[in-house]
Design a protein around this nucleic acid. Structure first.
Lengths: 203, 203
DNA sequence: GGCAGTTTCTAATAGAATTTAGAAACATGG
DNA sequence: CCATGTTTCTAAATTCTATTAGAAACTGCC
């Protein structure tokens, strides 16, 4: 019964991956509502029914993209943070996380973009598994902020929980307006970091 | 030919309004993909085909909600800013705008929520008219920032264009996680204002 | 109370997309 | 080179909504 585990052979796994990548690409560009299986199939270089050999349904495919997206973002930021030299300040660690999140979301991964853009637009049932990943990611940021606050590098009177949600929102919303042709990614990262460190106010 | 202008009588205009309100409510909650005409009709207290007496198509209805949402946000913030006492500082005017935007988006208007959440998810053709409103709104914020920077209340070396987009993103994304039961709107506003004024950094 | 115009409904249609059925092509090991 | 299992295709069925047709109900005015 190949239906149960059709990913055994390398060849087959490759096609499955191609379909998943195609779905991420189309989802990141057109959103949940605009994503047709025919489009995904075209990008993957197969006919639409071939998708059903690997995924139970359109929604199962979407769910996997969403999960992978959330998962990859977290892995990436964790890895980058793990590589930060011992003894780096807490605010600087926050800056690194901002940098890693933005670059990954905008440059490296259609999965991340798809996951971010469609988080609130897919049917409830598809959010369960991705939500668990997102919760882990939230925790990562919470810990960064708590540590920074305890070390006195973030103001003691700041509601870091709210601030964190606002910051992640600012970074996530970038997918809605970002155009690499007209803006510099370095500049974006620098501005987002400045927003966290010191805001816009003079002095 | 009543088909052309069915909104003449007050009674009729009322039903039309009910349908539009219902569409804003459902769109703000379920998003473009999840919005069924049958749901909209149910909320408005009519049968689905009645919608066609007032709107040419599902998309025409959606487009109107999107436009009204963008329009109302701008009007509201403009009005609030117009009421600010003469001689108020530029940074304080920014704080007022942040306050007005967030409160309107979260408390006063399903239209605003619908417009924000679905801006990037409706088909291209539906974005033209709303986009014009959004451009006017962007200009409003641009002017606030430019004035504040020229007055020296915003750091001279800040890329205010980028900062503005990040700030609006942070505020817009709030619709994705906001829960009035567990969070205080006053606290949210205060934190967003702090983000603009001084960021998270200590001193 | 009847009549004209407006508004809304029930029932049917249409169209688009997902999803199945089942046949063909392909790959691989004997 | 055949046999077997895997992978992909074409063609068809299903499903889900938007949309249309046309009848009924309602409203206000004479």
């Amino acid at each position: 019964m190949a239906t149960e585990v059709p990913h055994a052979t390398p060849k087959s796994a490759q096609t499955r991956q191609r379909i998943l990548d195609a779905a991420a690409e189309v989802l990141s560009r057109k959103g949940y509502a605009g994503t047709r299986l025919a489009d995904v199939a075209a990008v993957a270089g197969v006919q639409a029914p071939a998708i059903y050999y690997y995924f139970g349904s359109r929604d199962a495919l979407v769910e996997e993209v969403m999960w992978v997206g959330a998962h990859l973002v977290r892995l990436h930021v964790e890895e980058v943070l793990a590589a930060v030299p011992e003894g780096t300040g807490h605010m600087d660690r926050l800056m690194v996380a901002v940098d890693a999140h933005l670059r990954f979301e905008l440059q490296l991964s259609d999965y991340a973009t798809a996951s971010i853009r469609n988080a609130g637009h897919v049917p409830e049932q598809l959010r369960v598994r991705p939500a668990a990943e997102e919760a882990l990611y939230s925790r990562l940021w919470r810990e960064l902020f708590v540590a920074a606050q305890q070390a006195g590098e973030v103001r003691a009177d700041l509601d870091t929980s709210m601030f964190r949600l606002l910051l992640l929102g600012a970074m996530n919303w970038v997918v809605e307006w970002w155009n690499p042709r007209t803006r510099s990614l370095d500049e974006l990262v620098a501005t987002a970091q400045a927003m966290v460190r010191q805001g816009a106010g003079a002095r």
